[in-house]
Design a protein around this nucleic acid. Structure first.
Lengths: 229, 229
DNA sequence: GTATATTTTTAGGTCAGACTAAAAGATATA
DNA sequence: TATATCTTTTAGTCTGACCTAAAAATATAC
């Protein structure tokens, strides 16, 4: 049905339109050609080329010089790819014992194996997980995501206990750094002190006190613990 | 390193050279262009084309009009692909609950995901199986196959109890037929009567008596049970 | 041992997916 | 509004992997 290259474009467009989205309804935001070229490390000319093919296949809406947005069909494909990617990540970490910073590229390959039966069986085998090892929500078979309260650590009020639930950056160096400072999904964290000079902060990670940079804090997502009465 | 198309050619050449092989040592038999074209459902011209690329990459030895054979490098690649293919088949059947006639095409996709780490972890996760769901041996990380006594059911002496250990034909219709007549890997089987007129035979499959055709019998591999004193 | 048939290769073309360089459209600035 | 800049598209190439038709090499048959 769709080639690997096409699927990778669809994913990139989905990702960019999610970022750009002004939180509208089920519509996809319009993405400029250049943004796609940057995201995919390719030339704008190649992007125009491919966009025209995707448009022929009704996966995107395209108007010359106006950028591109996903059609319903394109969005469904994107969400399926995301589902497969994240399920494979869970498999690789939970079942095969990979570290969370090692699984992205492998999942990138595995996600292109198209089979609804395989996806659904894998999902069941893993116990229908709602989140992947990085805390990203896994869409269900109907494409619905589980929503969750989450804020960047920079928005957490001091002395409010919270749980680490995700990250906003998935690069291996960043994840390795989190390992080094003891930050992992499901760990309890709270802010002790904030330094407005450089946005760094002193945090308590399950008893361990650490100073972390604003850059790191911005990319850690937490869910404040409900106060116990 | 190698593309999907190249890998599929290497697999086909390996398969054909195994069939043609006069049981020599570690060498690969020479395979004619046409045989590859048939095996891959493509034209002889395309095969010549690809063979030349494979030869440039030192994956095959090639002499014009003389056919091709795998180099050591090519044979290593072929065995790795076979290992991955068969490990994924075990995963699909044992862990995800697929039937043995459903897994070939999916494994065909999954085998192209190249990662030694993934392969070895998958192998360990599955308990380092020695045979896949069709009874075919799975090469270990060094490329060595586990050998086994096995003969086609047509060679089994009457009234000799044996265990079904494999099949020589992997098509879904054949495997489904085996399901229908109650033949499965690890089941006990013995021949009651042979009809030389059409090579059919009356067999006992764990207590159930059945008449099976010569065509079916030829494609069932069994291991005679050692006689208990 | 020549003629015929089969196999294999070459020649030339297509398509997907990339590229660079140049042209055209859109946007920002004086 | 005119000009400069930035973005996007077009034009023209390249490579991998296929194709068909024709030519060349090998195998077979009389």
């Amino acid at each position: 049905m769709s080639t690997r290259a096409e699927e990778n474009y669809i994913k990139a467009i989905f990702k960019l339109s999610e970022i750009a989205k002004p939180k509208h309804d089920g519509e996809s935001a319009t993405v400029p050609t250049n943004a796609i070229a940057q995201e995919m490390h390719t030339s704008a000319a190649s992007v125009t080329d491919m966009i025209q093919r995707l448009s022929d296949k009704k996966l995107v809406d395209y108007e010359k010089y106006r950028g591109v947005s996903l059609t319903d069909k394109g969005r469904v494909l994107a969400v399926h790819l995301l589902r497969r990617h994240r399920l494979w990540e869970v498999f690789l970490v939970e079942k095969l014992g990979f570290a969370w910073n090692e699984v992205h590229d492998l999942a990138e390959e595995l996600e292109h194996v198209e089979s609804t039966d395989l996806t659904d069986r894998l999902d069941a085998f893993l116990g229908s997980p709602k989140f992947d090892p990085h805390g990203d929500p896994i869409p269900n078979a109907e494409g619905k995501f589980t929503l969750r309260h989450q804020v960047p650590l920079t928005d957490l009020l001091p002395e409010t206990p919270a749980i680490v639930v995700g990250v906003r950056e998935h690069s291996s160096p960043f994840l390795t750094h989190l390992d080094e400072i003891g930050v992992a999904i499901h760990k309890e964290i709270s802010v002790r002190e904030r330094f407005s000079y450089d946005d760094s902060m002193r945090v308590d990670i399950e008893g361990e006190l650490r100073t972390i940079s604003g850059k790191v804090a911005r990319n850690i997502l937490v869910k404040p613990k409900p106060l116990v009465k």
